[in-house]
Amino acid sequence: MVLHELISYDVLRLVWWALLGALLIGFAVTDGFDLGVGMLLPAVARTDLERRVAINSVGPVWEGNQVWLILGGGAIFAAWPPLYAVSFSGFYLAMFAALVPLILRPVAFKFRSKREEPAWRARWDAVLCFCGLVPALIFGVAMGNVLLGVPFRFAPDMRIFYEGGFFGLLSPFALLAGLVSVAMVAMHGSAWLLLKTEGPVAERARRIGMGAALAALVLFALGGVVLWSFVEGYRITSVIDPTGPSAPLRKTVERVAGAWFTNYAQHGWTMAAPALGLAGCALAALGLALRREVLALLASAGAIVGIVLSVGASTFPFLLPSSLDPRASLTVWDASSSHLTLFVMLVVTAVFLPLIVAYTSWVYTVLWGKVDARAIADGSGHSY
Rank of each mutant, 00 (worst) to 15 (best):
G244R: 02
G189V: 08
L175M: 15
M210E: 11
P151L: 14
A205G: 06
P245F: 14
A191G: 09
G144Q: 11
A177E: 01
P135A: 12
H188Y: 09
L249H: 08
F173R: 09
F154M: 07
R250I: 08
G223W: 01
T243I: 03
F139D: 00
A205L: 03
G211R: 00
A191K: 01
L222A: 15
A213T: 01
G244Q: 08
Y234S: 13
V185G: 01
I208S: 01
G233I: 03
F220C: 01
V141K: 07
E203A: 07
E203H: 01
S238T: 15
D241T: 07
G211V: 02
A213Q: 00
P245D: 14
G258C: 06
V226A: 14
G140H: 02
R159V: 03
R159N: 07
T252E: 13
V253W: 11
L249E: 12
L193S: 05
A247D: 10
A155Q: 14
A259F: 10
P151V: 09
P156T: 04
A142G: 13
A247K: 11
T262W: 04
A259T: 10
A216G: 06
F166C: 14
R204A: 07
A155S: 13
L179M: 15
G233N: 09
E198R: 14
R207Q: 08
A221Q: 01
G244D: 09
L249D: 12
V146Q: 14
T252V: 09
R250C: 00
G189E: 08
F161Q: 07
G199S: 04
I236S: 07
V218N: 04
L137M: 10
T243C: 13
G140D: 10
S190A: 15
V256W: 00
S246A: 15
L217R: 04
D157E: 13
T262R: 14
G168R: 10
G168H: 10
A177H: 11
G189Y: 04
W192S: 05
A212E: 01
E163Y: 05
A247R: 15
F161Y: 14
V253Y: 04
V231P: 07
I138F: 14
S238E: 12
F139Y: 13
L249Q: 15
V239Y: 11
T237L: 13
K196F: 06
F173Q: 08
S229E: 12
L249W: 04
A136H: 01
L222Q: 07
I240P: 00
R255W: 05
G178H: 02
F173K: 01
A191H: 02
E232W: 01
T262G: 10
V218F: 09
T237C: 12
G168F: 06
G199H: 10
S181P: 12
G149P: 11
G244S: 12
P245Q: 15
P172F: 09
L195N: 06
D241W: 04
L175D: 02
E163S: 12
F261G: 05
L193T: 03
M210D: 00
F154I: 07
P242E: 12
V201C: 08
V180A: 09
V150M: 13
Y234A: 03
A136Q: 04
V231T: 06
H188P: 04
F154C: 05
S190I: 00
L169P: 00
G168T: 09
P242C: 07
L147A: 15
M184S: 15
P172N: 02
L214N: 03
L176T: 06
M158P: 00
Y162Q: 09
V180Q: 00
A215E: 06
P200R: 14
W260Q: 04
G199K: 13
V231L: 12
A212M: 08
A213P: 02
F173T: 05
